[in-house]
Design a protein around this nucleic acid. Structure first.
Lengths: 361, 361
DNA sequence: CGCTTGTTTGAATACGCATTCATATAGTTC
DNA sequence: GAACTATATGAATGCGTATTCAAACAAGCG
């Protein structure tokens, strides 16, 4: 005997409350024109029947789904999983839902983006992934706004929000030069992405302004991952006559951590004793005891807020041509991998670090 | 001049292809009864018009949304963010979408669950969060299956998938006892959750079988987080005459890492030289160079597969009373925080560790 | 050839809500 | 009390697809 799960609809509630279906709809709509007593009556009836408004149906008839798609490229980099987390929190707080997608390393996210478009989401956030221009124009055609997060635009007509890589790179160069570094090793990231390139540019520009010439700077390819930079460092110092720098700049934290692990485990190099080192991003892992990474933190919360803001504005349809490229400054975080930094109240800092990592089962 | 973004519908495609709307629908439905030439004609027309089937509308009329909600309780514990990642990957591979939610620490997830129910998702996965029995019965009423992930059931009628905490705890006790530990310190987790309790039980039971009495075992409360266990360890060893154990068992990896950082930074205690230590979960952070944590890994992939399997089965409606409590065994991972373990090919292991952490920008 | 079985197809409809529009009621003003 | 304005309400309709259902058609068989 299969019980047909007939769902409770707004009509059922309407009947019980002695009103029409639209009235039920209005009772659940903020700022709707409805008398207080009716609303109460409807809500009571709804509660009695365990009525749950069907958001899918609402989406269909109102043409807004209250869903935002977030496409995350590299879930292995904690920065992006932290970002996803921030998006979920922020959207949830504003009564919207997150449709989460991931994209395999390197592969473009067209298929995934297509899925998102099919659900007629209110907007799409793309993080660390490559999208084809076909899909971009398709999304325009369909009227679903896209925003790039921490990704500068190959297509400048796309809305994007990111951290100022050039400025951030400069901050780190400042700190290292001030700490006395005369020779530098740069561990690059993804050669495709502009992020790595800009960070390196900012870093080198600042060094140049201090009179550090190219001959004092070496660059190696770190593959943009923990494993990649671990290997890159290993290869570098295993080579016959390796350059032995005063300072290392890894273009992101997860790579910086890979460098530290390799330097310590394979070459017994002390940090910052033998070599000073810095990363970029401000991920939680960087604040763990063994690292205490000096880095530049991307203002994730602000970036997320800004991204959703732009996405929403686009959505208002006022002028959908309003593409904005928003760049927020990075925040210098003094750690213990660059010597001589005045840590802000060491004890407090540690305490703060501990809290910031947190984690509860 | 506001251009009305009139979307391309199946009717438009039908007209262009010279068929009826249902035929268009069938063209996009696998195994549908449709002639090959018609399907081709429809698909061609669809491509020409940039037609994207509206999944929202499909959900409404077919009563299946192809969306699974995943509610994550503690995003600060990397185990759960890894789990979310695994769910996203798995569901995406089977052409389903993930509606992702987070729940504040400790708060029950009723509000969030309600949101999920409203979207008439095909199923809901709840991870590390407390749900009220009201909501459970509501979900039953609405016919949306719920599965608990890594959470044993207070309500035994709920489907759940978890790792065998008792067995896993036993494995760690085996290893530590074999390494010569005679006295133990246990850092407990969330007193509400059964996970911590069961892991401790398995650990103590095994010790008891080796003749280790209660007098040789101390338990302290680690608050279930990095910060909590860091402080717990600090307080313990700061006390006037602290018990100085041979071994420490932290009920999860993130706590174990907190313990290690505190022991090293504040008490200059070497691991495993002075004290051996183990965690539980198998998170990526545990494999970083400075830790190399000995632990028990939860088989996330299998657990995810199993969870979705059960969720789907429930969905078939055959017998929705088929609640299953699935328990998968944990896998012992020898690390360097318990001495004397035969690491499986040290070089290979390191290499594998490096790869497993990865991360690409 | 008449009949059955099986495959395609289109007309009609359901899905559950939001929205438009016209009507009805209450509230104001002179 | 007439003439308005503001507010509440319900009837009707639309959103874009999947799913009956019955009709049309082809094929197989005695």
């Amino acid at each position: 005997m299969k019980r047909k799960t007939t769902r409770v609809t707004s009509y059922d509630v309407a009947k019980l409350a002695g009103v029409s279906q639209p009235t039920v709809s209005r009772a659940f709509t903020p700022n709707a024109s409805i008398a207080k007593d009716k609303r109460d009556r409807v809500l009571a009836a709804a509660k009695q029947l365990h009525y749950l408004p069907n958001s899918i149906a609402a989406s269909l008839s109102s043409a807004r789904s209250n869903i935002v798609a977030v496409i995350v490229g590299d879930m292995h980099n904690p920065f992006y999983s932290e970002s996803l987390q921030a998006f979920i929190n922020r959207l949830q707080a504003t009564n919207r839902q997150v449709l989460a997608f991931t994209v395999e390393d390197g592969r473009d996210c067209d298929a995934v983006l297509m899925q998102a478009l099919r659900y007629h989401v209110d907007g799409i956030v793309v993080t660390s992934a490559n999208l084809s221009s076909d899909l971009i124009s398709l999304s325009r055609e369909v009227g679903i706004p896209i925003a790039l997060f921490n990704r500068s635009t190959s297509d400048p007509t796309l809305t994007s929000v990111r951290c100022d890589s050039v400025q951030g790179g400069g901050l780190l160069a400042d700190a290292m030069f001030a700490a006395g570094a005369q020779s530098y090793l740069i561990v690059r990231g993804d050669p495709q992405g502009s992020t790595s390139r800009l960070r390196v540019k900012g870093f080198r520009d600042a060094l140049a302004s201090f009179g550090i010439g190219d001959s004092a700077i070496t660059e190696i390819d770190g593959g943009s991952s923990y494993a990649g930079s671990y290997r890159a460092i290993s290869n570098h110092f295993d080579s016959p006559a390796p350059q032995f720098p005063d300072a290392i700049f890894a273009v992101n934290d997860i790579m910086a951590i890979g460098c530290i692990d390799a330097l310590r485990a394979k070459f017994n190099i002390a940090i910052p004793g033998d070599i000073m080192l810095a990363g970029f991003d401000g991920i939680r892992e960087g604040r763990l005891g063994p690292y205490h990474l000096t880095t530049v933190r991307q203002p994730i919360e602000d970036m997320v807020t800004k991204t959703l803001d732009l996405l929403g504005r686009d959505n208002q349809g006022e002028k959908s041509a309003t593409q904005v490229n928003c760049v927020l400054p990075g925040i210098f975080i003094p750690g213990r991998t660059v010597p001589g930094l005045v840590e802000i109240a060491p004890d407090k800092a540690l305490e703060a670090d501990i809290e910031s990592i947190s984690g509860k089962n």
